[in-house]
Amino acid sequence: MKDIHDQAADMIRNRHLKVTLAVEDELYIKMDKTILKKIGDGLLKNANENTPDEGTIALRAGATTDDIFMDFRDYGIGISSENKKHIFKGFFHTQPTRHYSSKTPYAFNAGGTGTDLLRMRTYAERLGFKINFSSQCCRFIPGDAVACPGSVSLCTNITSEMDCMASGGSLFTVRFPKWGA
Rank of each mutant, 00 (worst) to 15 (best):
G111K: 02
Y75L: 13
N48Y: 02
G78T: 09
G114P: 05
M11C: 11
C155I: 14
T64K: 09
G128P: 06
I12F: 00
K103H: 14
M165Q: 15
Q95I: 01
T51A: 02
I79C: 05
I158A: 07
K2A: 09
N50F: 03
M162T: 12
S160H: 02
D10Y: 08
S102I: 01
Q7H: 06
I77Y: 01
S151V: 12
L171E: 12
T159C: 14
Y28A: 12
I12T: 14
R98E: 01
A8Q: 05
S81W: 00
R121E: 12
A63K: 15
F72I: 10
K85F: 04
T156L: 13
E26M: 03
T159S: 15
S170T: 15
C148K: 02
H5D: 06
D3T: 05
N48Q: 12
W179T: 05
F176V: 03
F91K: 14
S102D: 07
I39Y: 02
F108I: 02
D6K: 03
P52I: 04
S101G: 03
T122S: 09
K18M: 13
Q136W: 03
V146E: 04
D32N: 10
C155S: 15
I29S: 13
M31L: 13
F88D: 05
A9D: 02
K130V: 09
L59E: 07
G42T: 03
Y106I: 04
A47E: 09
S80A: 04
I68V: 15
F172W: 11
V174D: 09
R98P: 02
F72G: 01
N109V: 00
K30M: 06
Y28K: 05
A147Y: 05
S153T: 12
S134T: 15
N132C: 13
P96R: 12
I57K: 07
K37F: 12
A9Q: 13
L17Q: 07
L43T: 11
C138W: 03
A58Y: 04
E26V: 08
G169Q: 14
C138A: 11
R139M: 08
